[in-house]
């Protein structure tokens, strides 16, 4: 009985430990007010990726397009390789608009997941709450919408964003092959959901 109580106590303590502490980061003074994501911030650029989406034991591809059309204003469109539009979303400030969505995907829970994921991609500056350091990485805690997110920055730039709930990572955004504020390879991985999106610049 004593063992059970101490185990439960131990498990509770671990789950309450802050995400940065769990990952071996220590608090530091923030160097800015905002945490930045520069990867879709150039209005002159068309961001075009070949996408692979693995969802619910199915895998399908398409072309994923992001365009900054104004300040805090982006369009995100997904088409098949043959050009048929699957979805077309507008993000403007806090507004989210569905310009088009294929009937098969027109489900509120799915649209909410896509809205939350893509909002993280196109949010250029998120209000910073705390900063941490460790492993040659600066970890910034910031809010996208109401959700807590951690931005991992190293010498190269922004490497990763992790959406955290109850001090546990829920969605990982991994940026790689980075040059000149452009990430050629992006992964969006869901921890509690069978949905992974891989984007390769074309």
């Amino acid at each position: 009985m004593r063992f059970l109580i101490s185990s439960l106590l131990w498990a509770t303590l671990i789950s309450c430990t802050s995400y940065p502490k769990k990952k071996g980061f220590t608090p530091t003074s923030p160097t800015a007010d905002h945490s930045a994501n520069p990867y879709f911030s150039d209005q002159t650029k068309d961001y075009v990726y070949k996408a692979n989406i693995k969802a619910f034991n199915r895998s399908f591809g398409g072309i994923f397009i992001v365009k900054k059309v104004g300040a805090n204003h982006h369009r995100i469109v997904f088409t098949t390789e043959l050009g048929n539009k699957i979805f077309d979303f507008t993000f403007k400030e806090d507004l989210f608009e569905v310009n088009h969505v294929a009937k098969e995907l027109n489900r509120k829970p799915l649209l909410k997941i896509l809205k939350n994921d893509f909002r993280v991609l196109v949010t250029e500056t998120a209000l910073m709450e705390k900063s941490f350091t460790g492993n040659e990485t600066i970890l910034n805690q910031a809010r996208v919408g109401k959700q807590k997110h951690f931005y991992f920055n190293n010498k190269v730039g922004l490497q990763k964003i992790i959406k955290v709930k109850n001090e546990k990572g829920k969605v990982e955004f991994i940026f790689s092959e980075i040059s000149d504020d452009f990430a050629k390879h992006i992964q969006i991985l869901h921890q509690n959901l069978d949905l992974d999106i891989t984007l390769k610049a074309i």
């Binding site: 002159t44 650029k45 068309d46 075009v48 072309i63 397009i65 365009k67 059309v69 369009r75 469109v77």
Partner: peptide, 8 residues
């Protein structure tokens, strides 16, 4: 796509 600078 109307909003893109160039056709894909």
């Amino acid at each position: 796509l109307d909003f893109l600078s160039n056709d894909i």
